[in-house]
Design a protein around this nucleic acid. Structure first.
Lengths: 153, 153
DNA sequence: TTACAAATAACAACGGTTGCAGTTTGAGTG
DNA sequence: CACTCAAACTGCAACCGTTGTTATTTGTAA
């Protein structure tokens, strides 16, 4: 379902080709990330991996996530939700963040208009553009409306 | 020079009108924020205020910055640079972030094209849009080029 | 001047993340 | 298949930014 996400097998091959060892911990983390569009925190990945590998340490999860990010296979997101989130989806996209529950949703779209006029760049070299839309997810919006209506009476 | 930034006097009046006390600590923080487009961290504001008030505590700086943010007089930015930054500039703008030195620069511009098609929103209510351009500031770009050229020989 | 609520300072604690040291293990070699 | 060793893993301590707590201080209105 997800576009531009490497399978566990592909990541395994990538690690092998770089002379890195294929450990069960790493493979389990690859699986936890695959087909995962929840933008999990390190803790969330840890929880998922624990199910099939009860002895893995949180430290190893951090280590592997950092390695993957350094290789460019996942992106680390800092959305101001307390902890970093990791996104295995490499196709160009942006994010909707619910300010109430913290859930993150992908937004596909081009936004070609988002370019800084050269005369305003003043020598700055832009290599990536992130757009974050903040607001309320459907559930939280409904809850807020309900609470508002209740409080108004 | 900065647009839409309240002066220390205006912030003082605002606090007074809300029944909040005018303390020298608060006024000093107002001054540290005024005409400041460096997007300072709490620590940076603390350092600046320390110059004229050597007994202020970092805790008070955090407290006041949080209060100002809650009143909507400054914006808290989470740019993944380790600590939160505070922006007293309320006019609509976006940010350029140097991935090497962490410096943050304002970008004025409209980007009217940045709207999510309704059919993709799926009930999400968007209340704000942040755009972050990442790359290299002129100084770091020059340093990188120099290092690259040197390494290539 | 007094009195009181509000604000401050000092310090402990917390959550996310990383450094470190000792042990385990993947994978190439004979 | 056993051996070897660098790489990876675990467990724990430490770190940093930030917030909670509580006793003390201080604007401010009476």
């Amino acid at each position: 379902m997800l576009a531009a996400v490497k399978t566990p097998a592909e990541l395994t091959e990538l690690f092998r080709s770089r002379g890195l060892k294929i450990t069960p911990q790493r493979v389990s983390i690859f699986r936890a990330l695959y087909d995962n569009d929840t933008h999990p925190t390190a803790e969330a990945v840890y929880a998922k991996v624990l199910e099939e590998m009860p002895t893995i340490s949180l430290r190893t999860v951090y280590q592997t996530l950092n390695d993957l990010a350094a290789m460019g296979e996942i992106t680390q997101l800092d959305l101001g939700t307390g902890s970093a989130r990791f996104d295995p989806n490499l196709s160009p996209h942006h994010h909707l963040v619910c300010e109430s529950c913290g859930q993150v949703r992908d937004v596909y779209g081009e936004f070609d208009g988002v370019k800084i006029p050269k005369n305003k760049l003043a020598g700055f070299q832009v290599s990536s553009t992130e757009i974050v839309f903040r607001g309320l997810c459907p559930d939280c919006a409904a809850a807020a409306e309900y609470a508002g209506a209740g409080a108004a009476t």
